[in-house]
Amino acid sequence: MTSDSKKLMDQAERSRLADNKKTKVKALLQKYGIILVLLFLIIVISTIQPKFLSSTNIFNVLTQSSIFGIMALGMTLVITSKGIDISVGSVLALSGVVAASLAQVSSATTQYYPSLSDMPVILPIIAALLVGLLMGSINGGLIAFTGIPAFIATLGMMTIARGLALIYTGGKPISQFTPDMMFIGSKVGFFPVPVLVYLIMIAITWVLLGYTSFGKNVYAIGGNIKAAEISGVNVKKNLILIYGYAGLCAAVASIVFAGRVGSVHPGAAAGYELTAIAATTIGGTSHYGGIGTVWGAVVGALVLGVLRNGMTLMGIEAYWQQIVEGVIIIVAVVVDMRKNARKK
């Protein structure tokens, strides 16, 4: 090839780079667009209902969002790895009733373990975490070793865990917890403890996904499972860890739930898995795998939290709230698909 034609090619290269800059701005907008949506919601709601911006209400929103927010963190790992976990609501109930049974005061009217004295709060917490971790790992193991789709494996677990919770409790709720347990649902000064727990879980997940080789493997498995295998990633082990972490998050959420509500019944948190999936999805985690961020899951949870709280403040009927939520989820996924289609 002549040097002239090389020059021409270089020129082409340069104009392509210029084009890249323009598309970069666009990409940025698409990437962080969900934050704009959140701001927009906040502005609209607070103009109609100024009470929304009071510090009490803001903490309210955060507290309300913390339970499904924590579940959405685990869900982010799952969906980024191109999976889904619809069992986390039931797993929350199961680990919740186990925690509840160990957190009762000895003076409770119906004590689950009648001979038990007041336990230090760490015991129910650890028990719940173990239950969540175990159930999640079973999900992961099923997917890894039998190769069944994640939806099916976790669908099975969803009914199994719910059934176990019903058997464990005999269908009755467990309440009357030790003050330490109730503390988890209360406040330190003005700061709600559930929000604190949420922040800690955000930090842990953020490090896990962004700064550990486990996190890199999650993206690789979701982005291109073959490439991950060829590069020597132990896909099976990682799948167990991913679903195990989702179960663990559900357990953490169950402890917050117990502390806040002061009672756990075996039918608790039905449908929470869908809220967690919705939050994750709204936050831009792609169901096509390989794309997902922790901050996205947080913003997604906040969008739902703000929306629910705002609509209630504005006196919108609960039925309508559901419809609005549904529309937002679908729009979020359509935008997500567009974003990815354009990259091709």
Partner: peptide, 29 residues
């Protein structure tokens, strides 16, 4: 490979070191 297989939505460096990322003393990437 004949059919290329990178992890598309990840960076060059994450693709190259996938499965054997360099670690800090804390065990983080």
């Amino acid at each position: 490979h004949q059919e290329l297989s990178p992890v598309e939505h990840r960076s060059i460096m994450e693709n190259i070191w996938l499965g054997r990322e360099p670690k800090t003393k804390l065990g983080l990437v």
